[in-house]
Design a binder for these strands. Structure first.
Lengths: 188, 188
DNA sequence: GTCTATATATTGATAGAC
DNA sequence: GTCTATCAATATATAGAC
């Protein structure tokens, strides 16, 4: 197998396992088993667990950038784009119920561990934050755009934590409806 | 040292360490060192790590019940009590910035681990949920009281996750202000 | 590039002396 | 009730054959 393909498989498996089980609870053996590699060969591709985490975060950053670009091309209006973000708690509802928000849970875990890569992980939030701020600016709310962006982010995290804890889909729907109403007051 | 006192010390130390560093990242050795006990003697008091976690959750449940009773005696009105809860993200602002919400982060970690005691930990949320629902019922919003209670809980979790990630106190203040405005529309 | 074998540290947990 | 000594399992990580 070519090096690039194996590396990609490792990052994919690690990404999924870190999300489903948490970073610390995932061992090299788990990732190696998921890819079908021996533990020994693993270090040919990544020299440390931090290196894998770094690659996973990079992959998530790239994936997020791609998703935001798609949203921009699919949704012509800024409020449509913000709504697309808000509805992610429904779109990814099953995953969030089972594993929480991939961005929030990773940041919480790395912050608590005092991990050196927490700054990198925070970048995932910053990506959404800046993008949301841009949409609110386009809606004519430049002065409070960052505040509004953070409010939308807080919504997503609050819903994700409680959805993960209580596994109640109706609660998620009600919160999205509430957010839709709130958002309509900021529409052009 | 008497058995009860040592046990209490262990639970206190474990409670703090589980909060600050996470459950899985905290080892027996860490707790034993914090209390000043040898690892060996540890098992005289608790036979497993799960048993300590169980005791910690029980202690938190008792502490939370006590706090809610205090709030009830200090705040005569239901909206004053709800506001007391909302402002906890400011009252405990420093801790939340450093370690997140003790209830939310524990629930997220245990849910992801698929830990048998996640149900117990969920009880911490349920305690707040039921108490908030009662306050909203007293305000005359019986039919949607649980929905409103969950909304307030979601607020607290969203703010806690982002405060933990970005360590921005001004953001917390703005969110509390927003919540105060929202709450005023449900006041008698 | 992949494997087996191994080193080293730490984990949760036990046995038995005092 | 507290200690030291120890166990078995698992963790990250390395060495070297193929």
């Amino acid at each position: 197998m070519s090096g690039a393909a194996t590396r990609e498989q490792i990052v994919d498996a690690a990404d999924r396992l870190f999300y489903h089980r948490g970073y610390e609870h995932t061992s090299f053996a788990d990732i190696a088993a998921a890819v079908g590699l021996s533990r020994g060969n693993f270090y040919y591709h990544f020299k440390s667990k931090d290196a894998i985490l770094d690659a996973v975060i990079e992959a998530r950053l790239a994936g997020t950038r791609h998703m935001l670009e798609q949203w921009e091309s699919q949704q012509p209006t800024p409020d449509g784009r913000i709504l697309q973000f808000v509805e992610i708690v429904l779109t990814n509802g099953t995953d969030i119920q089972q594993y929480g928000c991939p961005v929030g849970t990773l940041n919480t875990e790395l912050a608590k561990l005092g991990h050196t890569l927490h700054g990198q992980a925070r970048g995932l939030f910053t990506l959404f934050r800046d993008w949301l701020r841009e949409q609110f600016t386009l809606l004519g709310h430049g002065e409070q755009a960052d505040d509004l962006a953070m409010h939308v982010l807080a919504f997503s995290q609050g819903v994700a934590v409680l959805s993960h804890t209580f596994r109640d889909e109706e609660f998620v729907r009600r919160e999205v409806d509430r957010m839709r109403d709130w958002l309509s007051t900021y529409r052009k």
